[in-house]
Simulated assay, not measured.
Amino acid sequence: MSDSESTISPEPQRLLKIIVISDYICSFCYIGNKALHDAIEACSDLPIRFDVEFRPFTLMCASSPHLDTSEKRLNRNAYLAKKFGKEQAEAKWKVVTEMAQKAGLTMAEDGIVCRSIQAHRLSVKAYQVGGQEMQKELNSILFDACFAKGEDISDITFLADAAVKIGLMNREKALEFLKSTEAQDCVDKMIEAARANGVNGVPFIIIDGKWALNGVQPMECYLQIFRKLAGSSGSPTPSGMSRTCSDCKGPIVAPALSAQ
Rank of each mutant, 00 (worst) to 15 (best):
M169P: 01
T181V: 14
D185A: 15
N170I: 11
E192H: 13
A100P: 02
A162M: 11
R171N: 11
N75C: 08
A160W: 01
I112A: 00
T157A: 14
V164Q: 01
D152M: 07
D152W: 01
N75L: 06
Q184C: 01
Q128T: 12
S123W: 04
F147R: 10
M169D: 02
A108Y: 07
M169I: 12
E137D: 15
L80V: 02
I117F: 15
R115P: 04
F143T: 01
N139E: 07
I117L: 14
M190H: 15
R115D: 11
F84I: 03
D152C: 06
F84Y: 15
T181Y: 13
G104A: 05
A103S: 06
F84D: 08
K86W: 02
L178V: 09
Q184V: 12
I141K: 05
F84Q: 10
T97K: 15
S116K: 02
N75S: 11
E98V: 03
Y79L: 01
F177C: 09
F147M: 11
L80I: 03
A194S: 15
A163G: 14
R171C: 09
T97M: 08
S154N: 07
V113K: 04
I153G: 03
G85P: 02
F84E: 10
V129I: 13
A91V: 08
L138G: 05
F143H: 10
A89C: 05
L105M: 08
A145N: 05
D161R: 14
K102S: 07
S116A: 10
E192T: 12
S140Y: 07
D144E: 14
D152H: 10
V113F: 02
D161M: 09
E176C: 09
M107N: 12
S180A: 11
E133T: 15
K86T: 13
L175D: 03
V96K: 06
